[in-house]
Design a protein around this nucleic acid. Sequence first.
DNA 1: ATTAATTAAGTAACTGGTTACGCAAATGTA
DNA 2: TACATTTGCGTAACCAGTTACTTAATTAAT
Lengths: 164, 164
Amino acid sequence: MNDFLTEMEFVGLTSRLKRLSDSLLYSTKELYKSEGLDIEPNWNLIFILLQENKTMTITEISETLQFSHPAVVKIINKMKKNGHVETRTDTKDKRKQILTLTEKAHKQLPVFEKYWTAGRQTVMDLLADSPNFLEEFLKIEEKVNQSDYKERTLKNLKNDKHRY
Amino acid sequence: MNDFLTEMEFVGLTSRLKRLSDSLLYSTKELYKSEGLDIEPNWNLIFILLQENKTMTITEISETLQFSHPAVVKIINKMKKNGHVETRTDTKDKRKQILTLTEKAHKQLPVFEKYWTAGRQTVMDLLADSPNFLEEFLKIEEKVNQSDYKERTLKNLKNDKHRY
DNA sequence: ATTAATTAAGTAACTGGTTACGCAAATGTA
DNA sequence: TACATTTGCGTAACCAGTTACTTAATTAAT
């Protein structure tokens, strides 16, 4: 039916990536909402990190997840408001905020994990017919990290000029 | 270096998709800005559509690009402000806005196209080592369209229960 | 020891999308 | 012909991220 975007494959890749990630995001939000869970999509990553490491700082989380630190600040503020995370100032380095999961979080984790497991299963289902997807996706991420879209495109522009 | 997200493959796929699409988006914005082009990332899609079809309405564009119609309204308003698009009300159906490219847009198109071609080349470079990526990506899109993340995950939850 | 540079975290403003809602025009139906 | 439904578009409020800037604390360097 709608073949324009497919036809435009290369041109529209960015849009399509965004559309898919948005679609997964909103769908996850709806799921949690409809099931009455007071958590939000990316929190699982932070829950898992804090569960494994017990304590972490904003910067550590933002580096691990490769989010900007303001993004982490926002998420953590929400998680604090919901009572899932506590913070205290590091006594040795008063700039740092030490983050830990609350008792409430630990209590609810088994329930959350049920949903995360089901979600992981969904991703596996979605990827079932795309056996190379993750591996190839990783390659693209690595390439973009080495030299981003802007750099590469400027280089292509220059090369095109020399072709005359 | 940062292997957490990779290790979390399935769990973090949504985040990673978003990160990649954001990265491409911001990089494209920077490119246009640094080169002094007064256009923005997704506009090429609309330029191309309007060039091919001469006139289109908001709804037609939103359906073709699979964007929500408010998203298209916003983009078109910016393009109007920049003098690249003109609108007039359809005489037969006064609800419809007929969109066309302006003279200015047509004049600048060859310059824009140089950048879009270079960008398309960049995407091809990025995908060079991922020969199955687009095809497999399409499969995932199709699956999500058939049944979204929420639906699938709820189903997985139910199945898990029956396993006991 | 003082000053300069770096680092951690917070805030503000913005971005490109979304859903929800409202209005007016057109269409379908009794 | 009147009334209900649908359609097209616009606006508002929201969302999860970003960059840019600020402040305070720490570390490095003269």
